[in-house]
Design a protein around this nucleic acid. Structure first.
Lengths: 122, 122
DNA sequence: TTATTCTATTGACAAAATGTATATATATGT
DNA sequence: ACATATATATACATTTTGTCAATAGAATAA
């Protein structure tokens, strides 16, 4: 039992949201409410993401150094907290994609093996 | 704000482990310790999965009706709890794979979009 | 022989991630 | 006036994961 075991594999929804937001922010700075709506462009149904969860994640990402923010007072409508991706955020994205390729292979393999076995058992 | 929002997308490690075990048990009945080692055959490093987590998940899967078990006394070595997949487990597998295909597309799309943007920004 | 490692399973407790509900405030449409 | 949409925040509850310790027989190494 050397080297700690930990179930850090697969795609966790929290991490996926994190990289989705980082991607959107790399394209251009934006605010929380809008970021949730923009998930649509990535094939993720915004209705799957409660705002409270998105805002909390964004604040956690900021305290983790992946993004930064500043308030913007709108002439009309409530103020918005605009987020920007940091260098640390870009590094995080890079690391995530390189891992993601391996994870994708594992998932594809799992899906095709299950499909094959299910067909065979019928 | 009609219809609850909930972040149920992507691949959660718990669910992935669940279907990995169900797949292995559909191939043939097995016990906890062995199931963890067999993850290797699916490209999942067994060292990523603490036994305590695997055993707990198996018990939860049993109480959820996905698998059943019975003790087997070995002539040599400690007794083993052998698990069997149930009809409910097979149904769960089927439902998971059909969702997994869509999730895979989202993930592939996300990875390629991030890659594209990262290359473009360099 | 004694110690260590491997097989095998379980339970308790801690920490992290998610979910739900509520509160605030401005603007627009009916 | 009232409901809906935009926009953010916080508290609390629940679920999921992670860590640690305990048990126990068998095999292996010192």
């Amino acid at each position: 039992m050397k080297g700690k075991r930990c179930a850090k594999f697969g795609f966790k929804s929290g991490n996926v949201l994190t990289v989705a937001f980082l991607y959107l922010l790399l394209k251009n700075p934006s605010h929380g409410y809008s970021l949730v709506e923009e998930l649509e462009n990535l094939g993720i149904n915004p209705h799957f993401v409660p705002y409270s969860i998105a805002y909390r994640l964004l604040r956690d990402m900021e305290s983790g150094g992946l993004i930064s923010s500043k308030w913007k007072n709108e002439e009309s409508g409530p103020s918005k907290r605009i987020y920007f991706i940091t260098d640390g955020g870009v590094e995080f994205l890079k690391r995530w994609v390189s891992n993601a390729k391996d994870n994708l292979k594992v998932m594809e393999n799992l899906v095709s093996k299950i499909n094959g076995l299910l067909r065979q058992k019928n």
